[in-house]
Design a protein around this nucleic acid. Structure first.
Length: 368
DNA sequence: AATTTCGGTCAGATGCGCTT
DNA sequence: AAGCGCATCTGACCGAAATT
């Protein structure tokens, strides 16, 4: 967490003269161990301290993040800011309560939640690992020479590299880049190899919490499968609030890099498009919230199971009930379960994003 | 009859705990 | 520090029932 964003003032600033840069160009970072056994936070042990200046390659990306945030505010879209918009520098909500923290913004009459600059959790983790613990398990970076970002933003650079291979088949790319066609992460490996990265993730993607997701579009133009996410524990979910829920946190903080393949008439997957995407905050706090709350209520009240033939149907939110999200099993088999609050067991479930929603987002191709 | 829906399954990758 | 066994995770896929 860094400084509060003054929506009205920041629109007149440029990065190197900004209040953000002024205050935060040099940081004293202090890491302490969050010891859950310690009764008093003052007893937490301070393990690492470091006077930190952004490495040149990171500062380039932070500058671009700052520009992106300010552009949104200048366009009267402060209320649409989201942590997932940017890579290392985020605009996170800040204030005592959501209701008390609404602020006026220039160029729009819509009130926006107060926000502050923050270095994202994924970026802080990587600073700790790379620059302080000197962890050997660090990933290669995509942009080897920071001056490559003078002209293009990181995202534009990444997209243009992928675009060079547009029209080629996945099989062809796997052969060329020597990737095991059976590996589950083959599409993300292909993308990384195109970007010149041998390691199984890129340092920029790791620092920015960007997840590569393959999207396969069928010959008929539809996406067959919904998009899955990690499973949740029923007992945890019923104790969460939407604002602090695992699913909301994940969706608001993760940026996705969609690598889109389209099936030709012979069923070959052809590299077709690429785009960065994150869940629009307006949809997150309306439709997705609805599904989440409904799921929570159903689990709280006791899931109703009905046996039909071999299969057991539940009354959790299905894809037809909501345009954006639903709940479905994501388990090894029907024996792979988590306990329900009432003691029964149920196959592990997760929230999914509807295939139709993903398709809609792709066709919007909204690049702010 | 064809397509869509949605509970379920598969299998390689990953991660954890334990031992040496 | 490395190796092992095992559990879990994850992206992709399956197929019976429902719908068109």
């Amino acid at each position: 967490m860094l400084n509060i964003i003054d929506f009205n003032k920041i629109v007149h600033e440029d990065f190197f003269n900004s209040s953000f840069y002024h205050k935060n160009k040099l940081l004293l970072l202090i890491w302490y161990f969050h010891d859950i056994l310690a009764s008093n936070p003052l007893d937490y042990s301070i393990d690492y301290v470091k006077l930190f200046k952004y490495p040149e390659e990171d500062l380039k990306i932070i500058t671009q993040d700052w520009e992106k945030i300010v552009r949104k505010i200048r366009n009267g879209k402060a209320h649409e800011l989201s942590e997932g918009d940017t890579m290392y520098l985020g605009a996170c909500t800040k204030g005592s309560t959501a209701a008390k923290s609404m602020r006026k913004q220039p160029n729009s009459d819509i009130l926006a939640p107060q926000r502050a600059f923050s270095l994202k959790g994924s970026y802080m983790t990587s600073i700790l690992r790379n620059y302080i613990l000197n962890d050997i398990g660090t990933y290669e970076s995509i942009v080897k020479d920071p001056s490559a970002l003078e002209e293009y933003s990181f995202e534009e650079y990444v997209k243009s590299e992928i675009r060079k291979h547009r029209g080629r088949s996945l099989d062809e790319l796997m052969t060329e880049f020597n990737i095991n066609p059976k590996s589950k992460d083959r599409t993300s490996r292909v993308a990384l190899k195109i970007l010149g990265v041998e390691s199984k993730n890129a340092s920029e993607f790791e620092k920015a919490n960007i997840k590569v997701k393959a999207i396969r579009i069928e010959y008929n133009g539809k996406i067959k499968e919904h998009m899955s996410f990690p499973t949740f524990k029923f007992k945890d979910l019923v104790n969460e609030s939407w604002e602090e829920s695992e699913f909301r946190t994940m969706l608001s903080e993760t940026r996705f890099f969609f690598v889109i393949y389209k099936k030709d008439k012979n069923g070959n997957l052809i590299l077709d498009k690429e785009m960065f995407w994150n869940m629009p905050i307006g949809i997150l706090d309306t439709e997705v919230k609805k599904v989440w709350k409904e799921a929570k209520q159903i689990i709280k009240d006791g899931v109703v199971l009905t046996q039909k033939g071999k299969r057991t149907f539940n009354n959790l939110p299905s894809p037809s009930e909501n345009p954006v999200s639903h709940v479905r099993p994501h388990a090894q088999n029907s024996e792979d379960t988590y306990p329900l609050p009432d003691g029964r067991k149920m196959p592990k479930q997760c929230f999914w994003l509807n295939n139709s929603f993903i398709l809609e987002q792709i066709s919007l191709q909204e690049e702010d």
